[in-house]
C-alpha cells in the first residue's frame, strides 16, 4: 500500500475517497454520476494523467466523504476500470474495483425519444446485457446503448 500512498499524495488527502483509473473520456460523466458538483467539500479533479494500465486516465479526490457502494458502482457503467480508494489518516484503508449492478434505475436517460420513460414522469430502468464492452438495454423500449455512450440524467 505504500506505493499507492506516494502516487495518491499529489494533493494529499487526510480522509475521504479517491477514485482512480477512470478513462479520461469518462471523467466528467463520472463527476456527474457521483453528484459532487454541488458538494462543499474539498474536491480535486485531475485528467489526462499517464496510466500504464489504461492509457490516459482521470482521477477524482473527495475529502471527508464516503459514498454508498450503490453510488460508487454507478461509475462502472462508464468506467468499468475505475478503482475506489478509501482514505483514512493519509493511508489507503480500502481499495476496490467498481462493480456493475445488474439493473440500473433512475440514472441513465433512454436515448429513444419514443420511449415511454421520456414521456411519463417515471424512473428509467436498464438491464446490463453485455460486459465487455458494457451494454445496457432499456427495460421498457428495449433499446440498447454502450455504457460509455449512456446519457446521464
Amino acid at each position: 500500500m505504500t506505493s499507492n500512498k506516494k502516487e495518491l499524495a499529489v494533493a494529499a488527502l487526510k480522509a475521504g475517497t479517491v477514485i482512480d483509473r477512470i478513462p479520461s473520456t469518462a471523467l466528467f460523466k463520472a463527476v456527474k454520476l457521483l453528484g459532487i458538483e454541488n458538494l462543499d467539500r474539498n474536491v480535486t479533479i485531475g485528467n489526462n494523467l499517464e496510466s500504464r494500465k489504461i492509457g490516459k486516465k482521470g482521477i477524482i479526490k473527495i475529502a471527508d466523504t464516503v459514498f454508498p457502494e450503490t453510488v460508487l458502482n454507478r461509475i462502472a457503467l462508464i468506467a468499468p476500470t475505475a478503482v475506489v480508494n478509501t482514505i483514512e489518516n493519509f493511508e489507503v484503508k480500502d481499495k476496490r474495483q467498481v462493480e456493475l449492478p445488474e439493473t440500473i434505475v433512475g440514472i441513465v436517460k433512454c436515448d429513444n425519444p419514443k420511449c415511454i420513460t421520456n414521456n411519463e414522469p417515471m424512473d428509467t430502468k436498464f438491464h446490463v446485457v453485455g460486459h465487455d464492452p458494457v451494454v445496457i438495454r432499456c427495460h421498457y423500449c428495449n433499446h440498447t446503448v454502450e455504457g460509455k455512450d449512456a446519457k446521464i440524467l
Partner: peptide, 10 residues
C-alpha cells in the same frame, strides 16, 4: 396499443 415504446410494460 400505444405509439410510445415500452408503454405496455409500464
Amino acid at each position: 396499443r400505444h405509439h410510445l415504446e415500452g408503454a405496455a410494460r409500464y
